[in-house]
Design a protein around this nucleic acid. Structure first.
Length: 668
DNA sequence: AAATGAAACGTTTTT
DNA sequence: CGTTTCATTT
């Protein structure tokens, strides 16, 4: 039975009666077991599994909890539980309602936003208007953080930008309009659209369980309320709230008992993860933050206690080398070791030094994979097929044709939509209108005079786009590739076959060739053979990885959206874990190295000057050190020879009593 | 309007 | 350091 393994405090929480329950679960106190136990309790008491909704911070976390439930319940029961991240669950519901959901990468939406922003001229005030990107970030934060109107929310933080606010609002309005026109949906829209349909149509759950409750934002809070569940089971730890930049609203957890009059509060205070000395260190530091609910941690395991170590180095890379060497000479399996840092900029140095010693490592957040041109191209071709309104995807694709830039590509797009009477794919494959409107017959005719190959192709293909003023043999050859590919996959449903055909197509081959040449060109303009074959191999490797991923999906647009929703959860292979503090949330490791503990970097003072709080930085430190089960190593360097900057130790090292103020003033 | 090369820039964290 | 923006040439 799933409840047998719980201790008294966990059991009390897991078996609480239906209602509004808040469980304060400090680091390593068996939060997951308690949630699993809670669901087991609900199932034992006869609740329909369909009536349970489990919301987690990552899809991986949801998967792990369900996997544990499957030890006690048949798979058919467990799979009926609705679960996943807020975004994944909302996507599923929207999809079931058959609304076309074409989820777009934030980077794409930023480009769109910027193009709209640039249509608006900002006259010269003494004040500089916010940049397009910054305004986009603000708007996105607003959507997550506030239920007020944008201008109201905005002016309360930036009153001096009042002169711009009307223009900002116009830009945002136009942005929303264009998103609708192209059929695009952002991460935030997944939640916003769900809230909207919940106004007219109810989805009912007996109990909603919310993991990592401290990191839910206002929007997510509104969504939970909009579902009107009979019972709520929220689990979190305010000391681990680290997503303020994403609108995480610590008030969701801190005012829980006042918002819900009948609320019950439970505390898990026995830590089974870490040794006593690690916990004491963590507590010494976090006690500098105001306490919202009282808690004193108890040590639940009696492992051999190795006191945390502080290591100080004269230079950044000396630190990375020493850590790599320590990992190299230790007997702990690589998968049980993590190097944790505040800023991603630390990762490259650590990775490089580990590689030097031949130690494999994995970095979470495969942004590099999805950001490469070869992968983007594949996804664009597929996105366009599943959402023919996606002009941006078309532009990205067609700009690879020689002599074609955004302007010409856009003309082609509009022409093809015209030829297909509103349907781009039809316009490409089977235009119902046979010719383009002739704006300028003189130039149209002149095109065919000196270009035999085009005349020949035109007769063979007979596609009206050939008579476009900007058509030439190069870009029409590219067009034929696109046409050929889309006609090949007309009747194909399976994502993996669709991708396999794309990878083998002349269309993709032309891109591979182009990119490989680009990447193998030396400064003097010559192509180096080795580089060329290497580049080609790397491209095809990525293409194959995407192909492998696609095998798990039955529908192409499910696959595409999953690639965007779960882009960060793609981690492959074995090796030492290289993680930001944020990415380390919810994980645990035998040995943990927290690196670059310098004032300015951790706490990150740049962020604090932009409204970040020292309390949040302290919580980040708390999260980082409580990942360690047995050995915790803290380190910093006093100098960065690349940037030529000197560093002082992080204030958290003093708070942790790893350093004394008096010690340090001598060394500095 | 596209392509190319030079200069500037900025560097947080995530679904 | 790598990307992104700007300026220049075709």
């Amino acid at each position: 039975m799933a409840l047998n393994t719980l201790n008294a405090e966990q059991l009390k929480a897991a078996t609480a009666s239906l209602g509004h329950n808040l469980v304060i679960a400090s680091a390593g106190t068996g939060k997951t077991s308690t949630i699993v136990g809670r669901i087991a309790h609900l199932l034992y008491s006869g609740l329909d599994p369909k009536q349970i909704l489990l919301l987690t911070f990552t899809n991986k976390a949801a998967g792990e909890m369900l996997a544990r439930l499957e030890r006690y319940f048949p798979k058919e029961i467990v799979s009926q539980i609705e679960s996943g991240t807020f975004h994944a669950v909302c996507y599923r519901w929207l999809k079931a309602r058959d609304s076309k959901v074409a989820l777009k990468q934030p980077s794409e939406l930023k480009t769109l936003f910027k193009s709209i922003y640039e249509e608006f001229a900002f006259s010269d005030y003494e004040l500089q208007a916010f940049s397009a990107l910054y305004l986009y970030e603000l708007y996105s934060l607003y959507q997550n953080a506030s239920i007020d109107t944008f201008d109201k929310w905005f002016l309360s933080s930036y009153p001096d930008h009042e002169c711009f606010v009307d223009k900002y609002l116009l830009i945002i309005e136009k942005f929303e309009e264009e998103k609708r026109e192209y059929g695009f949906v952002s991460f935030n829209d997944l939640l916003l659209n769900t809230i909207e349909f919940l106004n007219t149509e109810n989805i009912y759950f007996e109990e909603i369980l919310v993991d990592e409750y401290q990191d839910t934002n206002t929007l997510q809070g509104v969504l939970i309320d909009a579902m009107r569940p009979k019972s709520l089971f929220c689990v979190g730890d305010y000391d681990q709230s680290i997503y303020a930049f994403n609108g995480a609203n610590i008030e969701n957890i801190s005012t829980f008992t006042t918002r819900y009059k009948d609320a019950s509060l439970f505390s898990l205070i026995t830590n089974y993860r870490s040794t006593a000395s690690i916990l004491e260190l963590a507590n010494r530091v976090i006690e500098h933050n105001p306490r919202i609910y009282p808690k004193q941690l108890k040590v639940g395991c009696d492992k051999q206690d190795v006191p945390p170590r502080l290591m100080i180095y004269n230079e950044l890379f000396e630190q990375y080398h020493a850590i790599s060497h320590a990992i190299w000479s230790s007997h702990v399996p690589h998968n049980d070791v993590a190097v944790i840092f505040r800023n991603n900029s630390s990762a490259d140095g650590v990775e490089a030094t580990l590689r030097e010693l031949g130690i494999p490592c994995k970095r979470k957040g495969g942004t590099s994979f999805f950001d490469t041109k070869e992968v983007k191209f594949l996804l664009d071709v597929l996105s366009l097929y599943s959402n023919p309104k996606d002009m941006m995807a078309f532009l990205h694709i067609f700009e690879y044709a020689k002599g074609v830039g955004p302007a010409v590509a856009k003309e082609f797009f509009l022409s093809l939509v015209y030829l297909g009477e509103g349907n781009l794919i039809k316009g490409i494959l089977d235009p119902s209108i046979k010719e383009l409107p002739k704006k300028n017959p003189m130039t149209t005719n002149s095109l065919f005079e000196g270009d035999d190959s085009l005349t020949k192709d035109f007769k063979k293909s007979n596609h009206p786009l050939y008579s476009h003023q900007k058509a030439d043999s190069d870009n029409m050859k590219f067009f034929e590739y696109i046409k050929e590919y889309y006609s090949q996959i007309q009747k194909e449903k399976s994502p993996s076959k669709i991708i396999a055909k794309l990878i083998k197509s002349p269309l993709y081959e032309s891109i591979v060739e182009l990119l490989s040449l680009q990447r193998s060109r030396l400064k003097n303009g010559e192509i180096e053979e080795n580089r060329y074959t290497g580049a080609r191999e790397r491209i095809l490797q990525k293409a194959m990885l995407l192909y492998e991923l696609s095998k798990n999906y039955k529908e192409i647009d499910r696959f595409l959206n999953a690639m965007i929703l779960g882009a960060g959860e793609l981690s492959q292979g074995d090796g030492v874990n290289l993680l930001t503090v944020h990415a380390s949330k919810g994980l645990e490791f035998m040995d943990v190295y927290v690196v670059d503990l310098m004032d300015g970097r951790f706490p990150n003072t740049k962020l604090m000057s932009r409204g970040g709080e020292i309390e949040e930085e302290r919580r980040l430190f708390y999260v980082a050190v409580t990942r360690a089960k047995e050995k915790l190593n803290l380190s910093f360097a006093t100098y960065d020879k690349v940037k030529k900057t000197e560093f002082k130790p992080s204030q958290f090292l003093f708070e942790a009593k790893m350093l004394k103020e008096s010690d340090y003033s001598l060394g500095a």
